[in-house]
Structures are given as C-alpha cells and as structure tokens.
Simulated scan of single mutants.
Amino acid sequence: MTWADFWALIATLDGEATEESCRRLAEELSTRSVPEIIGFAERHAEALHRLDQEKFGTLPVADLTARYGSPFPQSADVFLYTRCAVVAAGQAVWESVFFDVEKFAPYTSTAYDGEWLLYVPDKAYELATGEEWHRRTRYCSESYSNRDGWPHLRTERN
C-alpha cells in the first residue's frame, strides 16, 4: 500500500479515531485484498513508530497536573494512544509535528484518544477472512521501541 493510499483511508476518519469512525474504516478496508490490509497495517505501524520519539513522549498530558501542580507525564499506553490520535488527525498534522513539537502537544489531552485506530487492521482482516489475524509488522508501534527516537535509552541499553 502506498502512503497516498494509506492517508486516503485515514482521511475517512474525519480527523478522529472514534469507535464509530474506526469501525467504518475497518469495514472499508475489509473490502480490499488481504495484501492491501497487510499494507495498511505496515504503514500504520511505521507511522506510529516514526512518532515514537523522546521529544513527543516526554511531553506532559495537556490537561492534567500531578500533585502540587507539577506536569502529569504520559504513560506508555497514553503515549501510544496519543500517537494514534495524531495519525488519525491526518497526513498534514502527522507531517507537521516533526517540524514543531508544539503541534503534537494538544493531542496529549485527555480529549484525544486514538486507541480505536490500533484495532482497525485486525478487525478488517477478520471481516475479510473470518479468521483472527496473529500478525507482526516490520515496525513495532509500542512506546519506546524506536531506538533512534530515544537516544538516551539506546545508550543505556548498550
């Protein structure tokens, strides 16, 4: 799947990864061939992996504070769901955050939760084949897995 095809499918979310919009996307994707579903999963994992960077993951949650007013850090799960929300917002937003970290910051708000986007490839595959998909993608989308995005973690592990 090309990036253009991936972003065209993401555009059907209308900027948000709600349960309903992701259900519609999974249904649309399920009408495609299995290689296209796999291609979507690969692009999605790569898009999330590229966002897995310290400059984004160390931002505090936008609308929460910890005890005594200190910034509330993103957990690994919140950071993953935030990255999904950025992808769901579309190609222009996704590209812009790499040049301006402040454009990523609003998506750390509890008002954004892109978790539903994680399940789209699996649901599409299941709808298309009637089977569960036990898959791996080339890129890991889990938080802190992009060694290039977290240079201090890379040096600590060596």
Rank of each mutant, 00 (worst) to 15 (best):
M1W: 06
M1L: 10
T2D: 12
T2Y: 13
W3T: 12
A4S: 08
D5R: 09
W7N: 08
A8S: 12
L9R: 12
L9I: 07
L9K: 12
I10P: 05
A11Q: 13
G15T: 06
E16N: 11
E16M: 03
T18F: 03
E19R: 03
E19I: 07
C22E: 07
R23Y: 12
L25A: 11
A26Y: 06
E27T: 10
E28G: 05
E28F: 15
S30T: 06
S30L: 14
S30H: 09
S30W: 15
R32K: 03
R32I: 05
P35A: 11
I38V: 10
I38D: 13
F40V: 00
F40M: 04
A41Y: 08
E42W: 04
E42D: 15
R43G: 00
R43Q: 14
R43L: 04
A45F: 07
H49C: 01
R50E: 01
R50Y: 08
R50D: 05
L51Q: 13
L51T: 01
D52M: 15
E54Y: 03
E54I: 09
K55S: 10
K55H: 03
F56R: 13
F56H: 15
T58G: 11
L59Y: 04
P60K: 03
P60R: 00
V61H: 10
L64E: 05
T65P: 00
T65K: 11
T65Q: 02
R67A: 15
G69T: 11
S70P: 06
P73R: 00
S75M: 00
A76R: 15
D77C: 04
D77I: 01
F79M: 02
Y81K: 14
R83T: 02
R83G: 02
C84E: 05
A85S: 15
V86R: 07
A89M: 13
A89R: 02
A92W: 02
A92D: 12
A92E: 13
V93W: 02
W94Q: 01
W94V: 01
S96Q: 06
S96D: 05
D100I: 04
D100T: 08
V101L: 15
V101H: 14
E102P: 03
P106A: 11
Y107P: 10
T110Y: 07
T110I: 09
A111W: 14
Y112C: 05
Y112N: 14
Y112H: 15
G114Y: 12
G114T: 01
V120K: 05
P121I: 01
P121N: 08
D122P: 03
K123W: 06
A124W: 08
Y125N: 02
Y125F: 15
L127C: 07
L127V: 05
L127R: 11
A128N: 14
E131Q: 14
E131F: 14
E132H: 13
W133V: 08
R135A: 10
R135M: 04
R135K: 14
R135Q: 13
T137F: 06
T137Y: 01
R138D: 08
R138Q: 08
Y139V: 00
Y139N: 14
Y139S: 12
C140S: 07
C140Q: 11
S141P: 00
E142Q: 07
E142L: 04
S143I: 00
S143V: 06
N146M: 07
D148K: 13
G149A: 10
W150V: 09
W150L: 02
P151C: 12
P151F: 03
L153F: 11
R154K: 09
E156P: 03
E156W: 04
